[in-house]
């Protein structure tokens, strides 16, 4: 039993080594398939972050009249927080608003100067509302219309921004759906490419498989080395794909940061290197074993 296992493993490695070019060609295709798979994982992380960042930018603000007592505003905040759709409500007092305004325009002496000349704080207190789902801003805006605090409202930004918010909501939605379809499609491509490549490699060995049957080898003894080869493909390709991805991620990471400032792909990749490697090996070896076993079945009928 142990001798047989040893022979199977030996022949798996020998087959991989002696088939030289065929193994190299198969391996390179498997590496590409695994790179696609790896790209999908990264793409998934990126879209999630991009969508989250986009969602974060959508909000509605309620501006209160200058003479609203702070108590009323805090009451309004509390009642808003009880809504199921609301993720967070930030209170920005008039002073805070001024502070933010000054900070933002500190490089513009014209504005700073005119602000000082004004004597009084021209800015209004506001509540900044964020929803869990961009689609729910309409509901929240409706709610605001009906509330008792409406008398204190100076303006609600939803009305002005409704079109933009809706559009952003749609973009987020499409990005999620489109991303999923793309992932399913590309994952299917990676699986098929991997599967068919290993099938072709075994197809070119079909005569040998027949010969082995004719000299009295059992199916498991013939199949074993090919499955070992499949494992080798997965193992080597898994490691190679991560190694190839390293410089690629390193060089693209700064550019990605321009689009999605929240994410540092390089450090993310580094800190999750073994998770990536694990996925790649799982995917590569799993597919290797499955492809080899299915592909060889056909030639074992003699």
């Amino acid at each position: 039993m142990l001798t047989t296992l040893f022979r199977i493993i030996k022949y798996g490695f020998l087959g991989f080594w002696r088939n030289g070019w065929l193994s190299a060609a198969t391996l390179s295709i498997v590496v590409i398939a695994l790179l696609v798979f790896e790209g999908l994982i990264i793409f998934n992380i990126l879209t999630k972050n991009a969508i989250a960042s986009l969602e974060n930018k959508i909000d509605i603000s309620v501006y209160f009249k200058a003479d609203t007592p702070e108590d009323e505003i805090l009451q309004a905040k509390k009642s808003l927080e009880t809504l199921a759709e609301v993720k967070s409500v930030d209170y920005i007092s008039r002073d805070k608003a001024l502070e933010i305004f000054k900070e933002r325009h500190k490089d513009n002496p014209m504005i700073t100067q005119s602000l000082e000349e004004l004597q009084e704080n021209p800015l209004l207190a506001s509540l900044n509302i964020k929803a869990y789902n961009p689609k729910e801003y309409a509901t929240i805006a409706d709610n605001l219309e009906k509330t008792n605090f409406k008398a204190w409202f100076e303006k609600v930004t939803y009305a002005q921004n409704a079109v933009v918010i809706e559009r952003l909501g749609k973009i987020v939605d499409t990005a999620k759906k489109g991303g999923l379809i793309l992932i399913i499609f590309l994952a299917a491509v990676a699986v098929l490419v991997n599967f068919n490549t290993i099938r072709l490699a075994i197809y070119s060995n079909r005569e040998e498989i027949g010969i082995m049957r004719l000299v009295g080898a059992s199916n498991s003894f013939i199949r074993g080395p090919y499955i070992v080869e499949g494992i080798i493909y997965g193992l080597v390709a898994g490691i190679l794909s991560v190694v190839i991805a390293l410089p690629a991620v390193y060089f693209t990471s700064p550019y990605l940061k321009i689009f999605i400032p929240e994410i540092n792909l390089w450090s993310y990749f580094l800190s999750n290197l073994f998770v990536f490697l694990g996925y790649q090996l799982l995917f590569g070896i799993g597919l290797g074993i499955i492809s080899s076993s299915i592909a060889i079945r056909k030639y074992l009928r003699i």
Partner: peptide
């Protein structure tokens, strides 16, 4: 050797 290995013979 393959014919012997396939028959499970000793090394």
């Amino acid at each position: 050797a393959f014919a012997l290995e396939a028959a499970g013979r000793l090394q």
